[in-house]
């Protein structure tokens, strides 16, 4: 099994629902964005287009971050999810330098959004995260193991995201990649990402 995600760029409308629902799901501290939305311009006026490009950890089949980690904190589960064992991470950032996608974050920023300190929400959710360790998306592994799709997939108002098993040729993700010409970002990096995009 190799868990993967397909993001349909035709459907995505750049509402930031993924970015914010991820913050709500994980209570990540300021500056840590497991899911982000980029806006990219292509072409010149008036023959240009603006592209909304949601990004997250690619859960690469050949993850350079895991390779680079000196302590074994970064690892890959048997289902393909790339994860970080916070207890083993020493915050050396080797993985961040190795990741060609800049989707890892060192949790050394302020832990709360407001000057006054932690809100009850942050006390309940953000405080679970260790500081001075590296954080990233883990495809909402707890949700997935409970049979639910990742939070960004469940929430997307345009249903742009599909989650499934890339190893199963009959899965929805495999079918979409096959039929719509799904592609990963920066294939030249040679990491075999598990996040694929469908053309706009």
């Amino acid at each position: 099994m190799r868990r993967g995600m397909v993001i349909d760029l035709r459907r995505c409308t750049g509402c930031y629902g993924c970015q914010i629902s991820c913050k709500a799901e994980h209570g990540t501290p300021p500056g840590v964005l497991f899911a982000r939305v980029l806006k990219r311009e292509e072409g010149r006026y008036p023959s240009m287009r603006l592209l909304f490009l949601p990004v997250l950890c690619n859960h690469c089949a050949e993850p350079p971050c895991v390779e680079a980690c000196p302590t074994g904190a970064s690892f890959k589960w048997e289902d393909g999810i790339v994860d970080i064992d916070q207890d083993k991470c020493v915050g050396c950032r080797s993985c961040m330098m190795a990741c060609p996608y800049a989707n890892r974050y060192l949790n050394d920023s302020p832990q709360n959004y407001f000057e006054q300190g932690a809100t009850p929400f942050e006390a309940a959710r953000t405080a679970r995260h260790q500081t001075d360790v590296v954080m990233k998306c883990n495809f909402c592994r707890d949700r997935v193991r409970a049979g639910k799709p990742p939070a960004c997939v469940a929430n997307c108002p345009t249903a742009a995201r599909t989650f499934g098993d890339l190893d199963d040729p009959a899965s929805e993700v495999s079918r979409l990649i096959q039929e719509r010409g799904g592609f990963p970002l920066h294939p030249e990096a040679g990491t075999r990402p598990s996040v694929f995009y469908l053309p706009p």
Binding site: T119, P120, P157, A159
Partner: peptide, 17 residues
């Protein structure tokens, strides 16, 4: 499903200001 604003409503509710 919620847009970014709706998904983020908690932080408006719990705003200490």
């Amino acid at each position: 499903r919620l847009c970014g604003k709706g998904a983020g409503g908690i932080m408006t509710h719990y705003d200490p200001n």
